[in-house]
Design a protein around this nucleic acid. Sequence first.
DNA 1: AAGCATCTGCAGCCAATGGTTGCATGAGGG
DNA 2: CCCTCATGCAACCATTGGCTGCAGATGCTT
Lengths: 122, 122
Amino acid sequence: MTVPTEAPRPIDDELWSAIGDPSRRRVLDLLVSQGPASASGLAGRVPFTRQAVAKHLAVLERAGLISRRPRDREVVYEVDTGRLDQVTRAMAEVAAQWDRRLAAIKRLAEAAHAENKKRSSS
Amino acid sequence: MTVPTEAPRPIDDELWSAIGDPSRRRVLDLLVSQGPASASGLAGRVPFTRQAVAKHLAVLERAGLISRRPRDREVVYEVDTGRLDQVTRAMAEVAAQWDRRLAAIKRLAEAAHAENKKRSSS
DNA sequence: AAGCATCTGCAGCCAATGGTTGCATGAGGG
DNA sequence: CCCTCATGCAACCATTGGCTGCAGATGCTT
């Protein structure tokens, strides 16, 4: 058997820019909080046109964050929960990494500061 | 006295797009991991020109993520650790929120599934 | 069956922006 | 005094996020 949970690969650029755009994040938020919906349905809850929504949905789909499914004459989009979960983990990982590096730099800075004080008082 | 740590305000669009762009994130990563540097210094470690780097630095500065400081004849940029820390918290918060909503949806889906099985077997 | 309503998809246009090159300027080091 | 080198500004191009408009498909109503 393979690993039970996908390895938290480093989030790639496509993913980042997918969730980096404010409008796209808004659309994604709607899908996450309100469940599956069509492009037109989403367009009604968002301050821009259906076509813009459709483009965003295409980007989100290419990034693997959502999937499309024909239903009646509509096309219903739905969040890929596994993929989004993977993204949230990756985001947390990036945040943690920045945190560690910042902490390391802060320690260095404080050490240098202390050293300067010692030298100037000698 | 006010709250000791800044309230983790929802991350605004300027911040998101600042860290959403791959090149900008790369520049920011360099500043975080290698410490303060000038535009030219950064340009040497990145696959695009100094002018592009300068534009990214301007965006990062407008977003409050870095600050500029003249040093010799260079201009040195440095990460604002407090601000970046704030961003990492906000990112974690967004991730957690998605997580919660996904969990809620998953529970609903499983409940519906169980309900269907019960109905079809009755 | 005819027609209407509505949802999708495609094409073309505009503005913002991430990238480039080129040039002018200013500050230190021979 | 000149040369180097880092900065900043401007012009230009490609991509992309927004729009409008139109054509095609499909379901509902008369």
